[in-house]
Computed example of a mutant assay.
Amino acid sequence: MNERFPIYASPRSTQWAGSQQDAKKPFGNIAFEVERAATPILGCTALGVHMTAYEGEGDEMKIWVPRRSANRIRSPLKYDSSVAGGLPLGLTPLAALVTECEEEAGWPEQLIKNHVRNAGMISLFQISKWGGLAPDSDYVYDLKLPPTSSDEYQPPKPNDEEVESFQLLSIPEVISALKQNEFKPTSAVVTIDFLIRHGFITPENEPNYSEILRRIHRRSGIAGPGY
């Protein structure tokens, strides 16, 4: 994949003897780096960023959903998060997100910085092709686009070979696509997290609500930034 990814060790590790203050800084406890494709083989956490872009509120809310290109190795032609990507060495989550927004959707940096909001993280285990468990943690962001009448408003447009097209889907359409397994798995989890946080999935309408919450916020026991 030709991307260098950081691998973390606990700030309390003997590796940081004499320099624990540096290790306790944000993203300061990097032990070494590896090629991105090797992280699941080593059983290390692969960090990423996902953003859900939407318009409107309540029953009028709609989400911008891209369809992945047919040439993607993973989940070709599946729906994806509005913008998503890995968190390579040397970038903060916001910096990585700004880069991905420009590359995948043509959104300028200032639009993102003006309107994006961090909304926490998801953490889970994926089952790899060879049957192993690969830990995955992603920083989650929401982007409420300004009104269409605003000078700032800009719909997404495919800007690289990773995205085939964008669709503005209603919440019922998004939920239907989730139920029909039309989303890339990790992006499905991000979308479910968004629907929970915005009150579309609740204990009153989802019998497995508590189990869903546990499964999308798992503790991996593997070192990451700051722990």
Score class of each variant (00 low, 15 high):
residue 209 Y to D: 01
residue 197 R to Y: 08
residue 52 T to G: 00
residue 42 L to K: 11
residue 75 S to M: 07
residue 128 S to N: 12
residue 95 A to H: 08
residue 192 I to A: 07
residue 133 L to W: 11
residue 98 V to K: 02
residue 176 S to P: 02
residue 197 R to T: 08
residue 115 H to L: 06
residue 204 E to W: 13
residue 48 G to E: 03
residue 215 R to Q: 15
residue 138 D to H: 09
residue 116 V to L: 11
residue 50 H to D: 15
residue 197 R to E: 14
residue 91 L to M: 06
residue 2 N to R: 11
residue 171 I to E: 04
residue 220 S to C: 07
residue 142 D to L: 00
residue 23 A to Q: 07
residue 174 V to Q: 01
residue 130 W to M: 02
residue 15 Q to Y: 10
residue 48 G to Q: 05
residue 57 E to T: 14
residue 119 A to R: 11
residue 154 Q to W: 04
residue 184 K to I: 08
residue 78 K to L: 05
residue 50 H to L: 11
residue 123 S to H: 01
residue 97 L to Y: 02
residue 192 I to T: 13
residue 78 K to A: 09
residue 65 V to D: 06
residue 12 R to E: 15
residue 143 L to C: 02
residue 43 G to Y: 06
residue 190 V to Y: 03
residue 200 F to R: 13
residue 9 A to F: 07
residue 6 P to N: 03
residue 71 N to W: 12
residue 215 R to C: 12
residue 33 E to G: 12
residue 154 Q to A: 09
residue 9 A to Y: 10
residue 89 L to H: 14
residue 222 I to Y: 01
residue 37 A to C: 14
residue 27 F to M: 11
residue 169 L to T: 02
residue 110 Q to A: 09
residue 164 E to I: 13
residue 19 S to R: 15
residue 143 L to Q: 01
residue 164 E to T: 11
residue 25 K to H: 11
residue 175 I to H: 05
residue 58 G to S: 14
residue 200 F to C: 03
residue 70 A to W: 04
residue 91 L to D: 06
residue 182 E to M: 07
residue 48 G to F: 06
residue 120 G to P: 06
residue 2 N to P: 09
residue 159 N to G: 13
residue 69 S to N: 13
residue 89 L to P: 03
residue 207 P to Q: 10
residue 55 E to L: 08
residue 146 P to D: 06
residue 2 N to C: 06
residue 151 D to G: 04
residue 149 S to H: 15
residue 31 A to Q: 12
residue 84 A to L: 02
residue 10 S to C: 10
residue 201 I to S: 02
residue 173 E to C: 04
residue 118 N to K: 03
residue 41 I to D: 14
residue 142 D to N: 05
residue 207 P to H: 05
residue 111 L to H: 09
residue 70 A to Q: 09
residue 123 S to L: 00
residue 179 K to F: 01
residue 53 A to G: 15
residue 69 S to Y: 03
residue 141 Y to E: 00
residue 54 Y to T: 06
residue 133 L to M: 09
residue 128 S to C: 08
residue 104 E to N: 13
residue 47 L to M: 13
residue 200 F to L: 08
residue 151 D to M: 05
residue 203 P to A: 10
residue 74 R to Y: 10
residue 58 G to F: 11
residue 79 Y to S: 00
residue 184 K to E: 15
